[in-house]
Amino acid sequence: MFPSLPSETAIALVGDMNTRGYGVAENCISPEALASLRRHVQDSVSQTGGEYIAFGGPDALRGTFLQEMARSANFQALCRDLYRIGTQKSAPPVSFYQLLRCLAGKTGQQNAWFFHYDSYVLTVLVPILIPTEGQPGDLILFPNTRPIRKTYLGNLIDKILLDNALTQFLLRKGVQTGRVKPEKIRMTPGNVYFFWGCRSVHTNEPCDPDKIRATALFHYVDPHAHSWLRKTLLRLRNRQPLMTPVEAGIKIPQPA
């Protein structure tokens, strides 16, 4: 499912992630696995009428190569080594959060240019379908722009400063005009890409609406998974809204 890589590979990957912002392990995904995933992606996009679709969590990817990759002892060992070397801490016993994104159609273009930090320390990106003509949806990366925040509050402040209309507009225009120069990564299927997701601002450019850009993501180790503040905010966000008077069966007097 995933090759056994020498220990020197993990050291080299972390070195690349710390300097240029990302590391690449070449030819780790077999052509047969890619072909199977591409059929799955193409069938799924076809069912949407050629528009964007995403699958999150292990249940949504059950029966695919991505489920098997997450279970691979070699892949798990590599991610543990990357985390240990990069953070100088042992990796906690946690599983991956998986996501498969399929950009296509107009809705695919709408799911581009959103600059963000991931909630997880390590992000592993597996390209499945990358257009070879026109706009391929390159990965845009501002690497290692912050440390791993010790508290969820510090992380939340960073995200608020980034996830607002003004900041998003300035970053997008800066990249489009060339005034801001991030790492721009043209991905090759078969390779696997690694970067510090929670430390790096990143997004993807749009791809042409008549093409498909499909990538799988493996997120590893959420440093704030047990934050009381985070759990409280999630409960508040997921709480059912209060009923309106009409929904509650209360008659409102009409004006004379």
Rank of each mutant, 00 (worst) to 15 (best):
L233M: 12
I185T: 03
C198A: 13
Q110C: 07
G174F: 15
L233N: 06
T244C: 07
A256M: 03
A77K: 06
K173S: 04
I85F: 09
L66H: 12
D43F: 07
G190H: 09
N164G: 03
L5C: 04
P147F: 09
N238E: 13
G178E: 00
Q254N: 07
K89A: 11
P245I: 02
S227V: 07
L236Q: 13
I130A: 02
Q110F: 02
R239L: 13
K211Y: 15
R71P: 00
G197I: 04
R213S: 03
R186C: 12
Q240D: 12
Y97P: 00
H226D: 12
I252F: 00
R62V: 09
K159L: 11
K181G: 03
Y117R: 02
R71M: 08
H219A: 10
N144L: 06
F75A: 02
T107I: 04
Q67N: 04
A77M: 06
Q76M: 01
R199F: 05
A214D: 08
T167A: 11
Y120P: 03
G178Y: 00
D163V: 13
G23P: 01
L78F: 13
V121S: 13
T107C: 15
G86Y: 02
A10E: 12
L170G: 05
L99W: 13
R179G: 09
R199Y: 11
R179P: 05
D16E: 15
N164K: 04
